[in-house]
């Protein structure tokens, strides 16, 4: 497999009236063809902003991509002119957003909205594009597809709207699909329907996917690789088995400990991470997790406050060089000390 997307040292800031927001502070990752990457983080962790940045969708002003490169099939997307970028957006890279009601235009029929990119990118005429749009709707499981092309978004339920968004995203056979919390606004039974649909379509279309979410459960079932973000930085990244089964970053460990499990009775108390997420208006100096980190406290590490830990391969990883963390502490040392 070859590398499809290569993000290096991405830095994004927002210059607002209340001060500078340091949204993304040096994020690097690769994505291979056909791979599914799950990006997990809480609100304000920079997970959505970094994916908007690589689509060239950061509102500017106030936002600005300060530095970094995004290499997609040999081209740096951040250097492209707007009209060149437009040829890639929707065609090579497509995106599905969280709330299908606000991301669909309420005054246009869904037929108009799906055929727009088909006409623009594939040069189809009206009847060709309508036929293709109906095929797409049929594929994502919307009954009576051809007739429903003339319906407006409000005539669809939440789950059906998200299916329309998916059909729209897939319309030009993209090589990469970015899904930004696509199931967060949906109920669990509908979420299960959508996840099942996306999994099946991903194989059919053979595309790579970035799935952004705050729900660790959702990515566990769908992603090949997981990347945990906090305070605009990557904390831990690895195959989903490595990140969930052998977590090495104190934040990942804390996050998993604070989640109750559906499949075990919850007698024991949840371990909680003290404090609250960082205020992104302060320029990060050391590790963003330092104020809440129990490992830092336990091991008395002072450099966490003023030195950024690099993203390095975990100590004595079991052969896999894909499992990396950004942490000064060796968590096993802390655990050993604690016991």
């Amino acid at each position: 497999m070859s590398v499809l997307l290569e993000v290096k040292d991405l830095v994004v800031r927002f210059y607002t009236q209340e001060g500078t927001v340091f949204a993304v502070n040096g994020v690097s990752f690769d994505l291979e063809e056909g791979e599914t990457l799950g990006i997990v983080g809480e609100s304000g962790s920079g997970k959505s902003v970094s994916s908007l940045a690589l689509m060239g969708l950061i509102p500017s002003p106030p936002g600005k991509v300060e530095s970094g490169t995004v290499i997609f099939e040999g081209r740096d997307l951040l250097q492209l002119k707007p009209d060149q970028m437009r040829l890639i957006r929707g065609k090579e890279i497509a995106m599905i957003f969280q709330d299908p009601m606000t991301s669909l235009n309420p005054v246009l029929t869904i037929g108009t909205q799906i055929t727009e990119s088909l006409k623009l990118h594939e040069g189809m005429n009206t009847s060709q594009s309508r036929k293709r749009a109906a095929d797409l709707l049929d594929m994502v499981g919307i009954p009576d597809a051809y007739r429903r092309l003339d319906d407006y978004p409000h005539q669809f339920s939440g789950g059906m709207r998200q299916r329309v968004m998916i059909a729209m995203g897939l319309s030009c056979n993209p090589k990469l699909l970015i899904a930004d919390e696509p199931t967060t606004a949906l109920d669990v039974t509908i979420q299960a329907q959508i996840i099942e649909l996306v999994k099946q379509l991903k194989d059919e279309f053979n595309m790579a996917m970035i799935w952004i979410t705050h729900d660790l459960g959702v990515v566990a079932g769908i992603a090949d690789r997981i990347q945990v973000m906090y305070g605009g930085r990557i904390m831990e990244s690895g195959s989903s088995h490595e990140v969930f089964g052998d977590s090495r970053h104190p934040y990942t460990v804390g996050l998993l400990g604070s989640l109750p499990r559906l499949d075990s009775s919850g007698e024991e108390k949840l371990t909680q991470i003290e404090g609250s997420p960082p205020d992104m208006r302060n320029e990060p100096e050391g590790c963003p997790f330092a104020p809440r980190c129990d490992m830092r406290e336990m091991l008395q590490l002072d450099k966490c406050w003023d030195q950024r830990p690099p993203l390095e391969i975990v100590p004595d990883s079991t052969g896999a060089v894909t499992h990396v963390i950004s942490c000064w502490a060796d968590i096993r040392e802390g655990v050993a000390k604690h016991v």
Binding site: V188, Q191, G217, A220
Partner: peptide, 13 residues
């Protein structure tokens, strides 16, 4: 409903 809830464990999933 219960079977639709994702579990944060790839092995179980």
């Amino acid at each position: 409903l219960l079977s639709a809830v994702p579990v944060p464990d790839p092995g179980v999933e």
